[in-house]
Each structure stands twice: as C-alpha cells, then as structure tokens.
C-alpha cells in the first residue's frame, strides 16, 4: 500500500516536471502564433497583466499575414530555403553515406586518423569558422549564390558519425555474401548497405533539413542579395534599419517559417528521436 502510494507520488512528480518543461518550450511558440493574429497595437498591451488574452487573440485578424506576403519577398525566401534545405539534405546523405562506408568497410592505412580529423572539425564553433569559410567560399566566386549557402555544410561530421555507427552495426557477412554474389563496392553500397540503413538516413535527412532551414548566421554573411535571401534572414531584415520593427509581421513570418518544420517533425518524429538516441548528440 505504502509502496503504491510512493510510486504514485513519484509518477505525479515526474509528470509535473515534464508538464513544466513542455510549457517552457510551448508557451513562447504559442505567444508567437497568437501575436501573429493580433493587430500591432494590442500585442504588447496584452502582455501585462499576464492572462489568457496574452496567449489567445480576442479578435483574430489576418492583416499581418496579408501585409507580410504583399510587402516582403517572403515567398521567394521560402522557396530559396526549400531549395537550399532539400539540396543540402540530398548532398549530405550522398557524401556522408559514401564516406561512412569507406571508413567502416574499406580497409586502408590511416582510416582512423582521417575519421579523427573529420570529427575534430565537429568541435569548432561555427563562429570561429565564419571568416575563413567566407574567404574560401567567396574566393570560389560562390558568395551570393544558393550553392555558396549550402556548400560548407554538406560534408557533415555529425552525419558521418551517425552513419558510421549504423554501418558498423550491420553484419559484415552481408558484404561478404554480396562479394561472393559478385557485387563490387558500389553495388554492395547501393543494393545491400543503403537499403538496410534507411532509418539512420532518414534521421540524418531530418536533422540536416532542420539545421539548414533554421540557419541564420552563415546565410546572413554569404547571401546578402535580396533575391537569394533565406527565410530566417528575410524575417529578421523585413523592416528597414531606421524603422521600429512591425512585430505583427515578424511574428507572422516566424509562424510561416516554423510551420513546415513542425509538420515534418509531426510526420517523422519517430525517426528524429531515434536518431538523436543513436547518435547520443542533442540536436
């Protein structure tokens, strides 16, 4: 009896903590979405005192969305971001899977050193690499191009790490069987290895998409021309520097930018969480 009671208390305690964590993450998002449906003047008027009105629009309006789409090139930025994110996902999957295969399945001298060196780049913060990356990419004539936005990130050490782990878990007998059947490295890779690591590939695709869609600093530096702006930069730069920001439009932009990610996450969250657990790395 006492045991049951203490167990119930423990479950209740854990549940309360979880609810608090969910609220911490969910409340700001709710506030953003709610404000995107409020007229500019009521946004901050509802903040104090804190009430349900803070998080729910009393008289929802679509004015912010209308002006956002009419006045800014947000649709173009969305398209740019979709192109960059999709291409980055595709190229990352191709490059990382091939590199992971080579590092796990092809015996060559120095493979461990190569892997360690690649992983070392994982430890460098983006900010530290910004200037040299800019010099390299602009030196290649890729500044202000969509290719320039994505190219530094397609060789992802995180992706390599994630896939290398998955490849190592596949029994080596499978490749031996494929060799006996007459398959070379490329055929084994395409016909035997890749179909058996679908979940890690999907996970890496999702993580890469998320990273690419949300990237701000690098696109801000390398892609300043309005016609190749990405969504996060477009939202941040929608007002002129001399004006106060139009918060309603900003919140509408943030909602529009987040919507595809949320849909994607809801559809494929199983793979996303699985991948995070596999890699042992927080996204």
């Amino acid at each position: 009896m006492t045991e049951n009671r203490s167990r119930s208390r423990r479950v209740l305690g854990v549940s309360l903590i979880l609810v608090a964590i969910v609220l911490c993450f969910f409340t700001p998002f709710l506030w953003i979405v709610s404000n995107s449906f409020k007229p500019q003047l009521t946004i901050f008027a509802d903040v104090t005192p804190l009430s349900w009105k803070t998080f729910l629009p009393v008289h929802p309006v679509l004015e912010n969305y209308r002006t956002l789409f009419a006045r800014t090139n947000i649709l173009h930025a969305l398209l740019n971001t979709a192109i960059v994110s999709a291409a980055q996902v595709a190229l990352t999957l191709v490059l990382c899977s091939m590199a992971a295969y080579a590092l796990t399945r092809i015996r060559f001298r120095g493979s461990k050193v190569v892997f360690a060196l690649i992983l070392l780049t994982f430890l460098l913060p983006v900010e530290a690499m910004l200037v040299p990356l800019y010099q390299v990419v602009s030196g290649l004539g890729l500044d202000n191009t969509l290719l320039g936005v994505m190219i530094p990130w397609i060789a992802s050490p995180f992706g390599l790490f994630l896939l290398k782990q998955s490849f190592e878990e596949l029994p080596r007998d499978l490749e031996d069987a494929a060799r006996i059947d007459g398959a070379g490295h490329l055929r084994t890779f395409v016909s035997v290895i890749l179909p058996n690591v679908k979940v890690p590939l999907l996970t890496l695709g999702l993580v890469t998409f998320l990273f690419s869609w949300n990237s701000f600093l690098w696109p801000l530096v390398i892609a300043q021309a309005p016609e190749i702006q990405l969504i996060q930069v477009a939202i941040a730069q929608q007002g002129s520097p001399t004006q106060l920001p139009n918060w309603g439009e900003t919140f509408a932009g943030a909602t529009v930018a987040t919507l595809p990610l949320i849909l994607l996450f809801l559809l494929l969250q199983k793979y996303f969480t699985q991948g995070m657990a596999m890699s042992g790395i927080k996204g």
């Binding site: 069987a177 006996i180 059947d181 398959a183």
Partner: peptide, 24 residues
Amino acid sequence: MVFQNYALYPHMTVAQNMSFGLRL
C-alpha cells in the same frame, strides 16, 4: 558460400536473395 549467420539480405524476398548473384 553459405555463412554461419545465413547473411541473407534483410530487405530482399527469398526469391530476390536467391537470384541476386545471377542478376549481377
């Protein structure tokens, strides 16, 4: 060769497993 752990391709059917080498 027949392997200890069978080494069947998990994503292929029995027929595809048996015919993989012949297709190649």
